[in-house]
């Protein structure tokens, strides 16, 4: 299929992009990496009157330290998660997740901002925002604001980003030496969206887990924190009993929807298996 005809505007600043959006009467789409948008256009699932290209907005680029935060520009490509030294040092969970995101050709273009703004519940990075306790910087009519990841994902493909607003950067608390990460997913084939996936960030002390944030993806309409499982593990030493208890607690955290291929009970089972494996790894690292 071929996309319906659309106009194109290359934006050179955030304001320029937002004004173009406003002029279109909100019948516009921002295009970043295009790896989700272009297929949707080709399938005519979306047919905006105008595409606003944000790829040339300089301020959306780059990764830098900003006090206790790592600031990752919205246009940072998935492939940069694998190569950027600051990300490797201060946001290693993103680096750990990146190889599981699609394939090299897609990672070369797809952007972190696009992934988070789209908020596909099967995507790796949105869930990692939860695990990292990241904040999303949004440019809107009333200027810039920062939204905590916990408040960002509202429903299926619905986020705190309002019409015409732009995600400008992701802010991640800098990784500390007493922290540990773990990431894995169960996907039928390498690079596929996972049947279930999970990333976690633990703050440890003397072999105990002080606090832990556990985030699942591909388990429902939004990336989801496993708060009950977190509670089971927090303040404790991870041992076999804890792992079983955390797995049991997942019942209260996840309610996977009906799907023709993976029944809810199976997805929950897989989430438990994955959680068990990741916590076992975490216990070795703690």
């Amino acid at each position: 299929m071929k996309a319906r005809a659309f106009s194109y505007h290359r934006a050179h600043s955030v304001d320029d992009a937002r004004e173009a959006h406003a002029r279109s009467g909100d019948d516009a789409r921002y295009i970043a990496g295009g790896q989700s948008l272009v297929p949707a256009l080709a399938l005519r699932l979306q047919a905006p009157r105008i595409l606003i290209d944000i790829n040339h907005i300089e301020e959306l680029r780059g990764v830098r330290c900003d006090g206790e935060w790592l600031r990752i520009g919205a246009l940072t490509r998935h492939c940069e998660m694998l190569t950027d030294p600051l990300i490797a040092e201060f946001a290693p969970l993103l680096r750990a997740a990146a190889p599981f995101v699609a394939h090299p050709a897609i990672r070369n273009r797809g952007t972190l901002g696009g992934s988070v703004a789209l908020a596909d519940p099967a995507s790796e990075f949105p869930a990692m925002m939860l695990a990292l306790d990241a904040e999303i910087e949004i440019a809107g009519t009333s200027g810039r604001r920062r939204v905590r990841a916990d408040d960002f994902f509202i429903d299926l493909f619905e986020t705190a980003v309002g019409p015409g607003e732009i995600v400008t950067a992701i802010l991640v608390p800098r990784f500390r030496c007493n922290q540990r990460i773990c990431f894995d997913e169960l996907a039928r084939r390498r690079g596929d969206y996972a049947l279930v996936g999970c990333g976690m960030l633990a703050t440890c002390k003397d072999g105990l887990v002080e606090t832990i944030r556990i985030a699942f993806f591909s388990v429902g309409n939004v990336p989801t924190r496993a708060r009950s499982a977190e509670a089971v593990v927090s303040g404790a030493r991870i041992d076999a009993d804890r792992i079983v208890a955390a797995q049991a607690a997942l019942d209260r955290d996840l309610a996977p929807p009906e799907s023709d291929e993976v029944p809810p009970a199976m997805r929950l089972h897989l989430a438990r298996v994955l959680l068990g494996r990741l916590l076992a790894r975490m216990s070795e690292a703690a």
């Binding site: 169960l186 039928r188 049947l195 291929e261 993976v262 029944p263 009970a265 199976m266 089972h269 897989l270």
Partner: peptide, 13 residues
């Protein structure tokens, strides 16, 4: 032979 079929055969969920 999908994961669903294998898990079903094993009675895992």
């Amino acid at each position: 032979i999908t994961p669903a079929r294998v898990l079903k055969a094993l009675g895992r969920y």
